[in-house]
Design a protein around this nucleic acid. Structure first.
Lengths: 251, 251
DNA sequence: AGTTACTGGGTACGACGTACGCAAGTGGGA
DNA sequence: TCCCACTTGCGTACGTCGTACCCAGTAACT
């Protein structure tokens, strides 16, 4: 078989020249996988379940994708495709990166199971490529590629970690099969034991303060994002490369 | 029996009063899992394989742990235990956080498969608790807990993302079963196609520039870390307060 | 027309997590 | 002291997973 001949899925042609017309498509399969994951969680995304979703036999999927791992790569790139960055090197780098950050977070919140699919940087799909061009294009005019990569690593790191943490709690609740209050009540005894032990003053602070004040998730994310953008601003060369001028940020 | 009675593994007593003395222990099991993952990768960590590693029958593990997921939680906390932060609120916050960051990264490089185990923040194990106390204790005297959490999210985000990216390439190579040069040569055609298409100028820059200059991983990490620490420094109150002062939930 | 390369999909295999049951071992109450 | 309830380790077995293999049917080439 010629499966192992190809470097990755993107090198593998979707449709051959000869033979009968395929009844399905990669896009359709990836779409079904996303639908299932959204509705039933990542663990429900099995080959049989996907096949059933599109009304195909289980083994038919392997006509479109060499393995489940490759299918996941397809799905991962489809998710990147949801991130809308039209017209993004707009001249206002801070607005652009802010928009990017919020787009990524929104995508994570729409699909909490993204955490389970990993994106390879060495075999970027079309959507990830488009994203790279747009996002890195923002600072490209004023930075070396190395500096740009370094700064984007910080930004991406913050955004992904924040999203990951936000999402992990929701996923944990979902997987438990309980409602959020039920689940909270269930985990209460352990927290209570930690608090009453007196050994963890800072954890106690977190647990108690969190229950009271604590701003909303959105504001929390925004605050951290501003910090990160400040950090990027400080690393930028003093003179704006073009006539593009930006005043104070607001969103 | 009574498995579902407990909130999480940490609430479940390791040894009951009655009955014969157990032949193994949770620590021993977690240790075996780590050993296997280090040697053969995360996918080799199965219940049967772990049992074989310690010379037990497959089902014997379930006398110590209610499920595989809980076993993974044990392993995750064991990994946190590798992070050495003795004497860490030392008075020099920047040195402390730098040390923390390098400890975390080193742990990731030792165990590239950490990416596959997820740490719950709601049911922190003993090692994670100790870590929280130490790390957040660094800035606790001069920040509100909310601000501290926000800043630590940025730091953790950077460190974890950097480590994750560093590690993912190595894992991809390992899983392919090829040597690094073989694997690189294998993925070359795709990169070449992208470059010659001319559609991705920035990706091209990355691919070509990376091949030439590019400082070492360590320096790259250090550079980004300094940026992040600068960002934290900027968010710190100008005067080091003599004792804890909290403002009201303000950002 | 025949040849060839494809299609969808049924059957089957090995490996996984783990429910269940059993014989053997142990410690607290009689 | 002796029980016996409750532990222990573990063999067997079930359902589900990814997927190798095989087949008959179909569309584009010669």
């Amino acid at each position: 078989m010629a499966d192992a001949e190809y470097t990755n899925i993107w090198m593998r042609p979707e449709r051959p020249a000869r033979g009968p017309k395929p009844a399905y498509s990669r896009a359709q399969i990836a779409e079904a996988a996303v639908r299932i994951a959204d509705a039933e969680g990542a663990e429900a995304v099995t080959m049989r379940r996907i096949a059933a979703e599109i009304g195909a036999g289980a083994m038919s999927l392997y006509r479109y994708v060499p393995s489940r791992d490759d299918l996941i790569v397809l799905v991962a790139d489809r998710l990147q495709g949801e991130i809308d960055l039209d017209g993004v090197p707009s001249g206002d780098w801070r607005a652009d990166l802010t928009r990017y950050a919020h787009e990524v977070r929104a995508m994570w919140l729409r699909h909490p199971w993204v955490a389970t699919v990993h994106r390879s940087l060495l075999a970027p799909g079309p959507n990830q490529l488009r994203l790279i061009e747009r996002v890195m294009g923002v600072l490209d005019p004023c930075l070396s590629i190395d500096e740009n990569l370094g700064l984007m690593a910080i930004l991406n790191g913050y955004v992904e970690s924040a999203a990951r943490e936000e999402v992990s709690r929701a996923e944990e609740v979902r997987r438990s099969g309980l409602s959020e209050p039920e689940w909270l009540a269930r985990s209460y005894p352990y927290v209570e034991r930690l608090l009453s032990s007196g050994d963890y003053p800072i954890f106690t602070k977190i647990a108690t303060d969190t229950r009271h004040l604590r701003l909303g998730r959105d504001d929390q994310f925004r605050y951290g994002l501003e910090r990160v953008l400040d950090c990027i601003a400080a690393a930028l060369p003093p003179t704006p490369p073009r006539r593009e001028r930006r005043e104070d940020h607001d969103d």
